[in-house]
Each structure stands twice: as structure tokens, then as C-alpha cells.
Amino acid sequence: MLSIVTPATGTRLTTIAAVRAQAVVGDDVDDITVGEWIDQASASIVSHCRRRFARETVTQTFLRPANGPLILDRAPLIAAPAVVSDGLGLLDDEMECDLAAGLIYRLHGDCRGGWFSRRLTVTYTAGWSLPGSPDRDLPADIEQACLTLVAARAAGMGRDPMLRSRTVEGVGSTSWIASADMGALPPQAASLLAPYVRYVMG
């Protein structure tokens, strides 16, 4: 179970200014439309990667956790989390944290071991500061993937989204996208995002 303590101030993975600077869309597209496309592209990336990118402070609760590491829904962590086990806070030397991966191990002396807890709560801050923030630290390839999706949306204006290709010469050879392909990201964007796909969604 996860609850948000301090929500993100925004979720856009790029800015209208960046879209304009890279000439991703034409001047005939207004800022409101560009903003909507950025929102759509950002949501698609979140869904594809099974993770949220905007920095937030959250509390995650585990009931009778397994003996392995706690797998947090959000990553990367900004600092060591606050862990409370059955009402008692753990000290830093009682746990080991992999901040980048979002994993917490229970330490017994110098060895990793079981949690032996009925209820654990972990409060932590994770994610990145997004483009447009003075302290932005979102990896550039994630923003580029978002720009790629916005560019694809702009290029597809007025076209049938199910149409894959068309050959005119002898009037024929039209091919259509199979329903299984719908919603897939362009290969360029998917390649940029490959290192950020997670199997935990939070």
C-alpha cells in the first residue's frame, strides 16, 4: 500500500519551450495543444516504463514482508528512507539501501537477514526533478523520448492512425497497423526508455 505525502508539482517530461526550441512542431500549433501532447506523451512513457518519474515523498506499507529486500514502488531514492518496524524506527546501521534500485535490506550485524516484522512502513522521497524546474535532474534521454512522441503526434496530424504505409503507383498496396501494435511507442522512444522500465509500478 502506498500513499503520497508530498505530491509532485507537475508530471510533464519536457516543456513547451523545449518543443519550440527543437522545432518539434510547427508554429501553427498553439501552446495549449502542445501542452496537451506533452501530457499525453508523458502519460504514455509512465505506462510503458511502469514507473512515475516526478519526485514525490511517499509512505509505503508492507504487511509481513518476505525475507528478501523490500522492493519499493518508487526509485531512485534521494536519501535513506525512514523505516518503522512494528512501531519502532530502525537505525541506519540496521538496514542497507540501494537508492538507485529502490531496495532495502535488513541487517543483523554485518549480515543481511529476515525482517521478522508484522508491519513495516517506509517513508521516502524518490524520483527526479522534471524539466522546467531550476534543479532539474531528469535524465536527458527520458526527455528526448518525450520529444520524440510529441514529434510523432505532430507528424500524424490529419493522418489515419491505423495506416502504416501506402503505395500509389499502380493504385494499391495499402497496409494497416494490427490492433496489437496500437499504443506501442515508436522504436526510437522505446530504445531511449529501455534502461528505465521497471517491474514495479508506483
Rank of each mutant, 00 (worst) to 15 (best):
A18M: 06
R50Y: 07
C49F: 06
D141R: 13
S129N: 13
R119Y: 10
A79G: 05
R50L: 03
A82L: 12
A18S: 13
L63K: 02
Q60E: 15
I32R: 13
G102Q: 02
A18V: 00
S42F: 09
T33Y: 00
A17S: 13
A79R: 13
V122F: 04
I38C: 06
L90Y: 14
V34K: 05
R106V: 10
V29L: 14
E94C: 08
P65L: 00
I45M: 09
G26E: 10
G109Y: 05
R74G: 06
E56D: 01
G132I: 03
I71T: 11
A43H: 08
A75H: 14
A80S: 12
A23V: 06
D28N: 14
I78N: 02
V58N: 01
V58T: 05
Y105V: 00
V46L: 01
A66Y: 03
D28P: 00
A101W: 01
G89W: 02
A80L: 08
H48A: 12
D73Q: 14
R119K: 15
S44C: 09
R74C: 07
R50E: 09
W37G: 02
V46Y: 01
L70R: 07
A101C: 13
W128Y: 15
V58K: 01
G109E: 10
A41D: 09
V58M: 01
Q40V: 14
A145C: 05
P76F: 02
I38D: 04
L120Y: 11
D28E: 15
C97Q: 12
D137I: 08
P65C: 01
D86I: 08
D30L: 07
A17M: 01
I142G: 12
D27W: 00
W128L: 06
P69R: 09
D31M: 02
S117K: 03
I45G: 13
R51V: 09
V19M: 03
S129R: 15
R112C: 08
T59L: 02
T123I: 03
T59M: 04
R136P: 02
T57W: 03
F62I: 00
D30Y: 09
I104C: 13
G68H: 09
V19K: 02
A43V: 08
L72E: 07
E56R: 08
P69K: 06
R118C: 03
L77Y: 04
D110E: 12
V46M: 07
L63G: 01
C97F: 11
D93F: 14
R136G: 06
I32V: 14
M95F: 15
A21L: 11
